[in-house]
Design a binder for these strands. Structure first.
Lengths: 344, 344
DNA sequence: CTGAAAGCGCTTACAG
DNA sequence: CTGAAAGCGCTTACAG
C-alpha cells in the first residue's frame, strides 16, 4: 500500500474538466453540461458517448464552478445548538432524509446554545450562499436578523412556534402549551406538591417551565422553591443530582416534572437507589419521549415531540419554496402528544 | 413583518463583490482579498478602510469563487453510518471542535451502514473537492478506494484499527481486542454460560463479537446457540426483546454481553420486569460506555471507547497534513478501558 | 506594502 | 438537439 503523505490537495493543474470530457466525446462543453444536468434534452447517442468519456477519464464535476456560474449552490445550511444531542439528531435525520435525495448538501453547525456563536455561524454559512437555511428557534440577534433578510433566501425557523413572528417560515410546537398540558395532567392525577427540574435552560426549556408553572399558579400551587434549574447540559447523571438537591429542600414533594427525558431517567435511578417508589411516593415525568422512555421501569410519562417530522417538514417547506411554490401556510404547528405511562 | 415568499435565491446580479469593496475603499481587489485572508500583509490604514467598506456594503465573501480560484475548498467531508446515533454524535463533536475553529466547514453524510450508499456519498462529496475526508471503517468498495486514491486528498479512516491497512491515515481501536477483553473479564469473574446479544451487526459489532467468542472458545465455552444477533438498529427496546428470546432458548445463562450499551439498558430493564437479579442471577455487560451507563441500576459494566478523541484526533491529523506536515504515525490506536461496575 | 492580468471550471443567455 | 461567447467572484503568480 502506497502512502500519500505530502500530497495535500488537488491543484487545478491536472484535474479532468468538462472540456476534457467534451473533447473526448466530440461535443461541446455545453452539451456535456446538459447531458449531466438535463439528460432528457440531449440525444441518447450523445448521452452515451459522454458517459463513456466520463468513465474513461474519471471525471468529477466541480461544485464550486457550478455554483459560481449557476444560480444555485445546492446547499442547505442547518444551524442547531448541538449535533451531539439526542433531540437534535432526530431533527437532523428528518432534514437529511428530504435534502439528500433531492440532491442538496447539508452544511451543519453548532451554536452551543449561544446567540453570539449563532451569529458568527450564520455569517460564515452565508458565504456559501446556501439555497436555503434552517435555524433553531425564533430568538436571534438583530444583526443576524438583518443579514438573513438581506440574504433573501428561504429560511425555516424550527422547534418552537408562536412566541413571535418568524422571519420567513416556521415549524415546531408550542413549548409553553406542552408544559401546560403536563401540569394539567399532573393536577388531574391528584399531585399537589409538584417540583420542576430544568437543565440547559435554553429558550424552549424556559418556555416549557413557564407554561407548566403558570398552570400550577392558577391552582395556587406554584412555589419557586420547588423549581430547580441549571444551565448545565441535560444528562442522566445531572438528573440524579438535581433530584437529590430538590428533595433536600422539599422533602414533601409528591411529583417532579423534568424538562428532558434524560433528567427524568436520572431522577428515576436516584429514586431506585433511595428506595423511593415511583410513582407511589414520588411521580416523575419527562419531556421529548426519547427511545428508552417506554422501556425504563417504571415506564416514563412524557411529552412526545415530533422531532423527526419537524426536520422533515422544514426541509420540505424549503424544497417547495426552491421549486418556486408560494406556501399558503408559512407557519406550521405540528403539535405534541402526552404519553401517560407508569411513572406519573 | 414582511414575508419573503417568492424570492428563492440570490442571482448573481446585485450581489456585493470584492470589487465593490475595492472601489469603495480606493484599493485594488487584490488588496481587499489580502486584507481578508492575510491581514498582516496589509497596512493598518488600508485594513481599516477596507473593513469600513465591508461593513457599509454588507459584503459577504463568496466561498465558491474562493475555492474555484484558490487551491483549497476549506471543507472537510465526513462520512458516517448515521447522524442520529449516540456513538457517532460524540465522534462528530470531536471532529467539529477541531475543524470549526480552524475555519473548515464540515460536510456530513450518512451511509446507513450500506457500502453502496457509502460509495455514492463519497462520489458526491468528491465533487466539492474537500481538502480532506474522514470515513468510518476500513472496509469499502474497490471502486471507491480507487476514487479516493485518485482524488489524492488526506483521508482518515476512523473507529477501528488493525483489521487491514488503511488507504492513508487511520485512528480508532481494535474491536476484537475489546471484545476479547470483556470475555476475559467475565471468565475471571466466574461466569461460564455466557450469551451474546448483537444488533446492527456492522463490521465493528461483528469483530467485537468475534473477539469475545474466540476467547470463550479457548476455554471451551463457546456455544453458537447462545449468540443472538440481528441487523436491526440497536435500541433499548430491542435489547429487552433480544434478551427475552435468548433466555427462551438458554434459560441457564449466567451472563450476557451486549454489543451496545442501549441493548444492555433494555436487557437490564427486562430483567427488572422479570425479577431476575442482576448480576446475582444474570450478569449483563455493554459496550461504548454511554453517558447513562454509570447511573442505571445496577450500574453497567462496559467498555469505554474514546469516541470524542477518535473524532478529535482524526481531525487533527487532517489539519496537520493540510499544514504540510508528514505524519510519523499514520495509524493511531487510541485504546479502550474496561469499566467494571455492578452489573457484571 | 500594493496592483494588473489571467484563469479556476462551470452555466447562462442567446443563437441556430 | 447543439454550440460560441461571456462571465460568475475570487486567487495565483508575477511585478514593482
Amino acid at each position: 500500500m502506497t502512502t500519500r503523505q505530502g500530497q495535500t490537495g488537488g491543484r487545478s493543474k491536472g484535474r479532468v474538466t468538462l472540456s476534457d470530457v467534451a473533447r473526448m466525446s466530440g461535443v461541446s462543453a455545453m452539451t456535456v453540461s446538459r447531458a449531466l444536468n438535463e439528460p432528457q434534452r440531449v440525444s441518447e447517442q450523445v448521452r452515451e458517448r459522454v458517459q463513456q468519456a466520463i468513465d474513461a477519464l474519471g471525471y468529477i464535476p466541480n461544485r464550486a464552478a457550478r455554483s459560481l456560474a449557476g444560480t444555485r449552490s445546492h446547499t442547505i445550511a442547518v444551524v442547531i445548538p448541538s449535533v451531539s444531542n439526542a433531540v437534535f439528531n432526530n431533527v437532523i435525520r428528518g432534514i437529511y432524509d428530504v435534502c439528500a435525495p433531492a440532491g442538496y448538501e447539508m452544511l451543519m453547525g453548532n451554536t452551543y446554545y449561544s446567540v453570539q456563536q449563532e451569529s458568527s455561524l450564520i455569517s460564515k454559512f452565508l458565504t456559501h450562499h446556501p439555497d436555503g437555511m434552517i435555524v433553531t428557534g425564533l430568538d436571534m440577534a438583530d444583526s443576524t436578523r438583518r443579514q438573513l433578510e438581506a440574504a433573501a433566501i428561504p429560511l425555516v425557523q424550527i422547534m418552537e412556534v408562536g412566541t413571535s413572528a418568524p422571519l420567513d417560515m416556521n415549524v415546531g410546537i408550542s413549548h409553553s402549551d406542552a408544559g401546560a398540558a403536563m401540569a394539567r395532567y399532573m393536577l388531574e392525577r391528584g399531585y399537589r406538591r409538584i417540583g420542576v427540574l430544568g437543565a440547559q435552560m435554553d429558550y424552549r426549556s424556559q418556555r416549557r417551565i413557564q407554561g407548566f408553572v403558570d398552570v400550577l399558579a392558577e391552582g395556587g400551587l406554584a412555589d419557586d422553591r420547588r423549581v430547580l434549574t441549571t444551565s448545565e447540559p441535560s444528562t442522566v447523571r445531572l438528573g440524579g443530582q438535581l433530584l437529590a438537591d430538590l428533595l433536600l429542600r422539599n422533602p414533601d414533594l409528591d411529583a417532579v416534572f423534568c424538562c428532558n427525558d434524560d433528567l427524568a431517567y436520572g431522577a428515576i435511578y436516584e429514586c431506585q437507589r433511595r428506595h423511593i417508589r415511583v410513582p407511589q411516593q414520588l411521580a416523575i415525568a419527562g419531556f421529548n419521549d426519547l427511545e428508552g422512555s417506554a422501556c425504563i421501569n417504571p415506564s416514563l410519562t412524557s411529552i412526545q415531540t415530533p422531532l423527526y417530522d419537524i426536520g422533515k417538514t422544514a426541509a420540505q417547506m424549503l424544497m417547495r419554496r426552491l421549486a418556486g411554490e408560494v406556501l399558503q401556510q408559512p407557519v406550521v404547528d405540528l403539535g405534541f402528544q402526552l404519553r401517560a405511562r407508569e411513572s406519573a
